[in-house]
Design a binder for these strands. Structure first.
Lengths: 148, 148
DNA sequence: TTTCACGTAACTCATAAAGTAACAATATCC
DNA sequence: GGATATTGTTACTTTATGAGTTACGTGAAA
């Protein structure tokens, strides 16, 4: 299976939405993400349901922010995507009757749970708006060039 | 892809090996893990290369421990498996030229890295022998019943 | 009323582990 | 030495799921 890249992709899209007054079409977002409009619509659907963005049809339609990026944490974005499967690892399935199998599963699960907690905590501690903080100067210069 | 269950599976197998004097065949391990002998041999190959177990062919052959489980950490077992892909998540591929895409990727990677560090630390802090500690009494009773 | 754009469903493609089968090599038993 | 047991390895199929694609209905703007 192709690696699940939904989180970084929608973050990327949100950052672009924040830089535009007008709505951005799925077509345009598709070019930014190197994919096609239909996939973009699927990606964004969760964000719309979460109230982070809205979309309008017809001429001049597209996607726009409904909430400032300073008020959306990465954890909320992840949840809006449906909290996709984080790990490629896990136990094989049903709870086994063998005591040793259960011990092995429990130990694995414990490590994964701790790992997941760290992941969630990392995401919860960052707002989407924070992502561009290290690059504010660069972006400012870029815009000045564009205006000139 | 079916979920990668190699870690809990080989842990399970190691625990069984620790309970037997004689070698255990791939066939028998296969029954314990609900799979077939061929897959068992693949699973165990890494453990053999790591020096944790040995295998012998022919009558009475099979797998046996080469090192006490008190001296093998879960992290070492994970490495012996080839440090399989931990996350189902990740960025889509090549480093993008778009600054915003890179910001999104970096934030995602940072959270994943922290998460991985926690995972590794959890595994490193546990020896395979520790897994049965909570069940020592139960196992003792089971063996007494078996002898009776 | 034509065009644009989203919403959604249905399908194929790609990836990697699991599962399976087969067979050579080798060790034990008689 | 021959029969049997067991691993080592290769090659193949199956499975699961996101990505990618196509198509068409719906609704809004020009």
């Amino acid at each position: 299976m192709p690696t699940d890249s939904r989180l970084p992709r929608v973050l990327h899209a949100l950052l672009h939405l924040d830089q535009n007054e007008d709505p951005i079409t799925s077509e345009m977002i598709g070019k930014m993400l190197n994919t096609n409009p239909s996939l973009v619509r699927r990606l964004m659907a969760g964000l719309r349901e979460a109230g982070f963005v809205s979309s309008t049809k017809g001429h001049g339609g597209g996607w726009y922010l409904e909430k400032p990026l300073t008020e959306i944490s990465l954890a909320e974005v992840y949840e809006a995507l449906g909290s996709p499967q984080l790990f490629a690892l896990g136990q094989s399935g049903d709870a086994p009757s063998c005591l040793l199998a259960r011990s092995a599963d429990e130990a694995t699960q414990k490590a994964l749970e701790a790992s997941r907690a760290t992941f969630q905590a990392e995401l919860a501690g960052v707002m989407v708006a924070d992502l561009v903080r290290p690059h504010v100067e660069t972006i400012k210069k870029y815009r000045q060039n564009k205006e000139a």
